[in-house]
C-alpha cells in the first residue's frame, strides 16, 4: 500500500504533464522548443480551411473531383495536404440520394491534414455511441434534417483509413470562384453532421 501511495499519479493533469515533459526534456528525449512548434502548427496551420480548399477544387474542376473520388490521398496531396493521420484517405460524396457522415466509434480517428484536430464532441461518448444506431436523430441535434428519401451512410474511421465528406455544392453559387466557394465550406459539412446552406441572393463573399 505504501508503494502504491508513493506511485499513484496526482489527479491534476497539469502537474502530470509538467512532470512528464520536464523528465523527458532532462533525458534529452524531447526538445520543448520542438513541442512548441508542433502545437503552433496544429493551432494555426492545419485545420478545416485545408479541407475546404479540397472541396472547392472538386466543385469547380470535374477532373480533380474524379481523381479525388478515385484516390483521395493522392488528390489531396496535390494541394499540399498530407502527413500524420491523413496517410490513407477516402472521400465520400454527398448526392441527391446519399448523405454521408463520419465517426470513429473506437477512439478519435480523423483526417488531420484536411480538418485539423477533431472537436471534443467527435471524440466523446455520446456521438460515438449514437451516430451508428440513430444517425438521423444525431444529425437533428446538429440542426441537420436529411429527408426520408435520402439514404444516410455512416462511415466508421480507423487508424488505417480516414474519411472526408464531399458536401453538395449549394445552389445559387454558379460562377463563384474557388476561393469564394471554399469560404462556404464548414468543418461539420466535411464530417457530415451539417450541410451547406444556400447563400442569400447576391451574397457572394
Amino acid at each position: 500500500m505504501a508503494e502504491h501511495a508513493h506511485t499513484a499519479p496526482p489527479s491534476d493533469p497539469e502537474l502530470r504533464i509538467k512532470a512528464l515533459e520536464s523528465l523527458l526534456a532532462e533525458k534529452k528525449l524531447i526538445d520543448p522548443a520542438a513541442v512548441d512548434a508542433i502545437i503552433e502548427t496544429y493551432e494555426t496551420k492545419i485545420g478545416p480551411r485545408n479541407g475546404a480548399r479540397v472541396v472547392a477544387r472538386a466543385w469547380t474542376d470535374p477532373e480533380y473531383k474524379a481523381r479525388l473520388l478515385a484516390d483521395a490521398t493522392k488528390a489531396i496531396a496535390e494541394l499540399g495536404f498530407s502527413g500524420a493521420q491523413g496517410e490513407d484517405m477516402v472521400v465520400v460524396e454527398n448526392t441527391e440520394e446519399v448523405h454521408n457522415v463520419v465517426v470513429c466509434t473506437l477512439c478519435s480517428c480523423y483526417p488531420w491534414p484536411t480538418l485539423g484536430l477533431p472537436p471534443v464532441w467527435y471524440k466523446a461518448a455520446p456521438y460515438r455511441a449514437r451516430v451508428v444506431s440513430d444517425p438521423r436523430g444525431v444529425l437533428l441535434e446538429f440542426g441537420t434534417v436529411v429527408s426520408d428519401d435520402v439514404e444516410v451512410r455512416v462511415w466508421d474511421s480507423n487508424a488505417e483509413l480516414r474519411y472526408l465528406v464531399l458536401p453538395r455544392r449549394p445552389e445559387g453559387t454558379d460562377g463563384w470562384s474557388e476561393e469564394q466557394l471554399a469560404a462556404l465550406v464548414s468543418r461539420d459539412s466535411m464530417i457530415g453532421t451539417a450541410t451547406i446552406p444556400t447563400p442569400a441572393p447576391g451574397a457572394a463573399p
Binding site: 493533469p13 493551432e43 466509434t105 466523446a124 461518448a125
Partner: peptide, 23 residues
Amino acid sequence: LGGMHGFGPINPEPNEPVFHHEW
C-alpha cells in the same frame, strides 16, 4: 462505444478552440 445507449446529448460547442487548457 458504437451502439451503446445512455450517454445523453452531444452538445457541440460553437466556435470551439483547438485546445481548452494549456495542459
